[in-house]
């Protein structure tokens, strides 16, 4: 049985992401700034949650009065954070968690940055990795510098569907189900993923669920139209917990282009066992989202152990190396890693 995606993405970007409230809050702060009330803004979210996308939308809306700067790796030179003369009144800084190194002598750029945002008249809108923000907030009281904090919420299921399908054309994706519509059970068991930080694991709990669309169709005597697609996106939604980056990765793993079926949507639970230093390196990758080997060895103060630690993390399939040589946490392992880090209290 197959159904096809209708490709009806006529919504604006904000509507697709369901971030109207967040965009509204930021725009309200910009309006306040225009009448003399300067309140710097921090956009905070976990990895792959969409903070860069949100900042891009803010830049698009305010293109005439905003300058955007993106930090793509750890900043070591103070000149890199000095603003050019033609910088507009609103400054958008993406990935501000790259402004410090977690080591002795690694906070000079960060002090310079705090001095800059508190001494200049410009409005600063910044994005931060959630775990770096929490760390820096506990250590330096970062919230005092950013009175407006916008935390990106998890996506709704419908927004995840639109977010994933917007890349495809009309009827391009075929939702395939091994079972015929009549054989669809009206009660089925879904495995609900749950992160238990006390155990440091993500576990899958079987939960009986009622197939409401199928039941509705049966009761109203309609032909089943959306069940397969619904089942697929429900699984993606449960597994990703509304994180668009994870959702896209799960989608890609399950997609046998142009076909996809519910059984191919994977559920991931990693049994993580690491030594403390390995866990610390993993926490650094989580804090920064992407790190080069040299940056890791710089922060842990040892070049000899880095290769061994990275090898362990790679073999446990917790991280991967991208084309630019950055180590990142695998999207599908992200929830398990966070649960483990919380168990060890390496992230707060």
């Amino acid at each position: 049985m197959e159904t096809q995606h209708n490709g009806s993405e006529e919504n604006s970007f904000g509507e697709i992401l369901g971030l109207q409230n967040e965009i509204g809050e930021i725009q309200a702060s910009i309006a306040d700034y225009e009448v003399g009330k300067k309140l710097n803004i921090a956009i905070i979210a976990g990895p792959l949650a969409g903070k860069t996308t949100l900042l891009g939308e803010i830049e698009r809306i305010n293109s005439s009065r905003a300058t955007g700067i993106t930090f793509s790796e750890i900043i070591r030179n103070k000149k890199e954070i000095s603003l050019p003369d033609d910088t507009k009144r609103i400054v958008l800084l993406d990935n501000c968690h790259f402004l410090y190194r977690r080591k002795t002598g690694g906070f000079d750029i960060f002090y310079e940055f705090l001095d800059m945002i508190s001494s200049q008249e410009k409005l600063f809108i910044t994005t931060w990795n959630l775990y770096s923000w929490r760390y820096l907030n506990e250590v330096f009281g970062l919230e005092k510098y950013f009175p407006v904090q916008v935390v990106i919420p998890d996506f709704e299921k419908e927004n995840l569907r639109l977010f994933i399908l917007k890349r495809y054309g009309k009827e391009e994706i075929r939702f395939y189900n091994d079972k015929e519509a009549k054989e669809e059970p009206f009660i089925y068991v879904a495995k609900y993923p749950l992160e238990l930080s006390s155990l440091g694991k993500k576990i899958l709990i079987p939960v009986p669920k009622i197939n409401i669309p199928y039941l509705k169709n049966r009761l109203l005597n309609k032909k089943e139209t959306q069940t397969t697609e619904d089942r697929i996106f429900e699984k993606i939604y449960l597994e990703s917990k509304g994180n668009p980056g994870i959702a896209r990765r799960i989608w890609e793993l399950g997609l046998d282009y142009p076909r996809i079926k519910p059984e191919d949507i994977g559920q991931f639970s990693f049994n993580i066992e690491l030594e403390y230093e390995e866990a610390f390196v993993l926490s650094l990758i989580l804090l920064y989202q992407s790190l080069k080997k040299t940056e890791i060895s710089d922060m842990i103060g040892s070049t000899s152990r880095v290769d061994e630690i990275i090898f362990r993390l790679l073999t446990q399939e917790l991280i991967f190396k991208d084309e630019a040589g950055f180590f990142r946490i695998r999207p599908e392992a992200l929830h398990s890693v966070v649960a483990y880090m919380k168990k060890l209290r390496l992230v707060w």
Partner: peptide
């Protein structure tokens, strides 16, 4: 300053509002 940075960047440290450095 150096001592503070050494403490807050340690892999063994725990900091919160109730547990300051």
């Amino acid at each position: 300053r150096i001592l503070r940075e050494a403490v807050v960047s340690s892999k063994y440290v725990y900091i919160s509002k109730k547990r300051p450095v």
